[in-house]
Design a protein around this nucleic acid. Structure first.
Lengths: 201, 201
DNA sequence: GTCTATAAGGTGATAGAC
DNA sequence: GTCTATCACCTTATAGAC
């Protein structure tokens, strides 16, 4: 999506994403973005006019990436029995690499819930092949009855929450050890898959 | 905990909690807290000296309330078969009434992870009766093998995530309708309980 | 396009009267 | 304890030279 942009512009976007996702809109200073991008602060305004506009560029992009990633894995043509494990693995890996963006999105959506509508409508979650698959398997009696919306949220919950609750889990269950926490996330993948399969089959 | 405090002080704490939990530290203006508490801005400094100190009072209190609530329900003396449904119901109701505090806590912990250690250590999550109960039932073969830590996180995930992801769920699955969303949360309680029971028994 | 300098406005914090 | 007035600082944003 950055094809037609100058190098400076891309540097700015990259730096802004890093700072905004960590500190949020209110906590971010334009100076910090400039430092991170190794450019002059005025250039931020030259390219994006205001903090608000720069923020919106980043926010939309991040939300689109996040929801688009969900679409990619839930919408694929694949049998559920291999698809569900793949969802858990792919999404867990993605979240571990991008641990800040979920809280960032949820936090800023709370302040400005309007932005989301267009983007989420564009994605059209309910059209995912996943939803049809669940209904079919339930109809055929291959799976215990469950509304696909709930199973969808259950999978996301079990995958996303442990990542965003990192500080509490580390302090409360892992004796403050980062290593133990990572190990916990790693072993969780198979445990979550088993948990889901036991619940629905 | 507010027993020895003047009325003004309590008004301030109440107002500060409301504003801080919605807007976070960076997004909060002292003037807004003063307005909310219907007092003069200088009084905030008279009672709490600085924004930082007022924030810390609120944050510790909120974190303590949140984790303490978990303790209360996971630590009770009760058979698992009735305890798990009670956990889901009690915590869901609590979260629906306090939808902002989870994101508030997670968001601010990201910025300042040190504060948590003392409070969470104080709570001593691993000592909850719940953990012992799971191990016992697994040993007796009454339950499929699962580490109590994972089951603990699974229950919290399934309960907490749908509340903090409200804007995305509303936009993506509920056609933007608040009513449909509330209905979804309501019916979820039993569905989550069934999901967990199917997975572990 | 990129820089320096500076304006314009807001925010936390304090002094001092009552 | 509570108020008004004000300071000192910080942050966004712009003007203008190069």
């Amino acid at each position: 999506m950055n094809e037609q942009k100058t190098e400076t512009e891309q540097q700015i976007l990259k730096a802004a994403k890093q700072v905004f996702t960590r500190k949020g809109f209110g906590g971010t200073r334009m100076q910090e973005i400039a430092n991170e991008a190794k450019i002059n602060k005025s250039l931020l305004h030259y390219y994006f006019r205001s903090k608000q506009l720069l923020f919106e560029a980043i926010f939309k992009d991040t939300l689109f990436e996040f929801v688009g990633k969900i679409k990619l894995i839930f919408n694929s043509e694949e049998e559920l029995i291999t698809k569900i494990p793949k969802i858990v693995h792919t999404y867990s890996d993605y979240l571990q690499k991008n641990p800040y963006i979920v809280i960032f999105i949820l936090r800023e959506l709370q302040a400005e819930p309007k932005i989301i509508l267009k983007i989420v409508e564009m994605i059209n979650i309910k059209s995912f092949h996943f939803f049809e698959q669940i209904n079919q398997e339930v109809e055929k009696g291959k799976m215990k009855p469950i509304k696909p919306e709930h199973l969808f949220i259950n999978i996301l919950s079990l995958t996303i929450f442990p990542v965003i609750a990192k500080p509490i889990i580390m302090a409360g269950l892992m004796q403050g050890s980062n290593e133990l926490y990572n190990q916990f996330l790693e072993e969780r993948k198979e445990i979550v898959i088993n948990f889901i399969f036991s619940a629905i089959y």
